[in-house]
Write a protein that binds this DNA or RNA. Structure first.
Lengths: 244, 244
DNA sequence: CCAAAAGTGTTTCGTATACACCCATGT
DNA sequence: ACATGGGTGTATACGAAACACTTTTGG
């Protein structure tokens, strides 16, 4: 917990989830006594890496501690290395205490993470960390340069969504086509023609319809689909790009 | 030159140039007395960062020292952080000497760089650093994990070429359309239909024909074109992706 | 029977693809 | 005059976009 940390490098995670037709990010509040929106204590989940720890493992560790989830999509998207990025914050002190070492300069490696929000995060963990989902359209102020990191992560996600099948990481295993469409609309910030969208998707051989429908909805239940990753990979080889 | 370095973080550059219809990378040989191909002393241009130095400045510094060039396209594409990446190499000793500090673990941040090979690198610099261009299709063995870094840089370039106007960073300011085509063919490793390629390019408003032709060639001289970056940026806003 | 979302086809337009010959220059 | 790469046009096929109504369920 102390001298085992590498005080030069940290990892921060921008954790995205799709909920109620909105893209949200999971932020934590280090000071539960204060109002999260105004306290300035909100931050991205993150930590110094452990000596000898590979960055991706640090990111997985942070995710697992916070959410209890493993096997989550993680993608490194940037490094934030402004030498002054930790200045003018008493959170610097916290880092010093945590590492037990003088903290001169910390560069942070940023990952974005996509989670299926239906795998509910255990409530006790959310409470322990004061974790909460905030709509990406209105992320409150955070400490350090974390707002910049979150923005950059969102930009990257928007861009990479267009060429990689990331959307399925954000949806339940079995999803309705209209759910997929609303996800695209939420992330890209535009609206899409329903008929054309469905035609395009249904042509893709790696999106396979099940013999199963939604239930418990008070309208015509949608046919469920799954994403077949093996099929996707085998097709991708020749025509490198995922287009939806 | 010594205690001023940060012994935890380095920057390595994969420098690409397009020459004689081939994509090449600029490698350096730290031991001029040996045959570069077999000595195992080849490496990517790189260095530890200076204390307090921003990563991109370190990359710019490395490029300027090696090539004498400024204002070069640089893009960070990855971090190489395997704790064992420097093991089993006597180059580790060199790093220790250079920094004057015990080197425990160095993570390296990798940039790729695109240079117009017609801006010839001053010969004295190439000699001082033993720098040499090697075709990307047959890059010799290098120290550390530098082969992996170079491969990864090439992959990234191939991918990003498809959605960003990077090609013009590799061509002379004024270029012929067929040069552009050969560049694409070299990087993508495929051949393109000449007529269709020209049609597609000529539709793009940010590729502007000049009233000027090649000279000194012993065939019909090609009309020269330039890439208008301002125009590109203004158009890009709405339809986010560069497609060729 | 009403509310709510699922699901469905056709036409039009533009871009992608395939393909073979003449042109301008230097030597 | 010839060798070398530059430059051009058309026909076909395919995917993108625009557009409005019917269907199925739960309450």
């Amino acid at each position: 917990m102390t001298a085992n940390l590498n005080p030069h490098i940290s990892v921060d995670c921008v954790i995205f989830g799709f909920d109620e037709n909105e893209l949200k990010a999971l932020l934590i509040n280090r000071d539960p006594s204060e109002d999260p929106a105004s306290s300035g204590k909100l931050k991205l989940p993150g930590d110094l890496i452990i000596r000898g720890e590979v960055l991706i493992h640090a990111a997985e560790r942070i995710l697992a501690e916070l959410t209890g989830l493993h096997d989550i999509y993680l993608k490194q998207f940037g490094i934030f290395d402004d030498p002054g990025r930790l200045d003018s914050s008493d959170d610097l002190k916290w880092l010093q205490e945590r590492s037990g070492l003088p903290v001169e300069r910390v560069i942070t490696v940023a990952y974005y993470s996509l989670i299926k929000i239906d795998k509910r995060i255990p409530t006790d963990l959310s409470i322990a960390y004061n974790a909460q989902w905030y709509p990406c359209s209105s992320i409150p102020a955070m400490i350090f340069d974390h707002n910049m990191i979150a923005e950059s992560g969102l930009d990257t996600l928007r861009r990479e969504m267009l060429t990689e099948p990331l959307c399925f990481e954000l949806l339940p295993e079995k999803f309705a086509l209209n759910q997929l469409q609303r996800l695209y609309e939420a992330i890209l910030g535009c609206s899409l023609d329903n008929r054309n969208f469905r035609k395009k998707i249904q042509r893709l051989p790696y999106i396979v319809p099940l013999n199963e429908r939604q239930n418990g909805v008070r309208h015509k239940p949608a046919l469920l689909h799954v994403f077949d990753n093996e099929k996707y990979i085998s097709i991708k080889k020749d025509n490198t790009v995922f287009i939806i």
